[in-house]
Amino acid sequence: MTDPSRRLRVRALLDAYFPILFGAAILLAFVFGFWLFQVYAVEEVRTEQRTFVQWSESTELEHSALIVNESVPFEAGQRVEDRPIYYTTISDALDITYRYEHTAGAELDVSTDIFLRVRSVSGDDVFWEVTEPRASTGSESVSAGENHTAEASVNIAELRRTIAEIQSQLGTEGSIEIAIVATTSIDGIVDGQAVNRTHGSLLRLAVSQTSFRVTDTETIDEEYTSTDTVETTQDASLLEMLASLLAFSGSLTVLGTLAFARLRGYIELSGEEAELLEVYQQEQEFSEWITTGTFPSERDYEATIVVDDLKGLVDVAIDTNKRVIKDEQLRVSTVLDDDYVYLYIRPDSSASEWLFNQADMTMEELD
């Protein structure tokens, strides 16, 4: 006997486990429906910590020199700005412009002092230091975006004479460090909080016999921040929207298919189908007693007995110590004894009517 169709076995499984499968389909439809509702109807609210810049302040140092002596590259009276080098033969002073500004939503009182600092250093050791005031602005009210400005000038010849005088008195130990230092004091109220601080900016200067140059500047650029907790709504991603929709639709399809198939009787097996499935299972169980063969076209025995099921035919084979011969084409199984032909005819046998008509006797007639 051949294996019954896979669809028949699947239907048998569906019929046996239908309550479990139907309940699982309802549960999945509910779960995926809730997911779909959450994705499309409920906005996801997230809490985040965000840092905001409340206000900032910055300083700037610019330098320039006035050309006092005519030369081929430069004209007398010309002002050169932010040059990498200045020449003592055509300029005798370095001019500095210092600027401070802030972005606070309030007016701040700002004052600046500029002084020249000359000292001799060796590593972290300071051998001597001299400071000379160069400019002072006094206190002035500065609003956001306004510039607080201070200007100063350093005469290079005088600076060199001062250094030479000190070295003649103290010696030449250490390296000479020259800096123009701007100190700014800020006072006021910003966002209800008192602000009282001092900032220092500086410009380093190197001087030789024939030139002077700015080697470095240090300025400030400060930001004052605050952290707030904010709530934001997050839209679902396209992938999540599609996945939830497909999952819910799929669960409804499975649920509807199961209900439709049950109501129309597509799942429950008929009596003949149930018998065919049982025959298949019995054939697997008693396969060692069954041999495939061909049913004879003419009867060579005196009597034919039709048994009701395959298990009964196998019992006959065991009792008579014979093999069960299975005809795949006719869908008939037989045991050939000395006196009788024992037949089991499957419900789907194409020769069922002929075989029953040709049988000499049935089991009932033997009784």
Rank of each mutant, 00 (worst) to 15 (best):
S352N: 11
E231G: 08
G200K: 06
E75H: 03
A65Y: 00
F32N: 09
S201C: 09
L94S: 06
I114C: 03
T232V: 10
I20L: 14
T362K: 08
D338Q: 14
L343A: 10
V80M: 12
D15N: 13
G171C: 02
F74K: 04
T88I: 04
L310D: 15
W354G: 14
V142F: 09
R213F: 05
F18E: 14
Y17H: 06
E302T: 14
R346F: 09
N357V: 08
F18C: 09
R331K: 14
V341I: 06
V230N: 01
S136P: 04
I345Q: 04
A194S: 15
Y301W: 07
T253C: 03
E101Y: 05
Y100E: 00
E285W: 09
V126A: 03
L343N: 12
E151A: 15
A261H: 01
R46N: 13
A104F: 00
D300C: 13
L355N: 15
I20T: 11
E81I: 12
V279R: 09
A259N: 03
I180L: 02
V307K: 03
L258R: 04
L239G: 01
T217H: 02
E132N: 07
H199K: 05
F115S: 07
D109G: 12
V154L: 07
S237V: 09
V118R: 00
R161H: 01
A152N: 08
V154C: 10
D360L: 12
V110T: 03
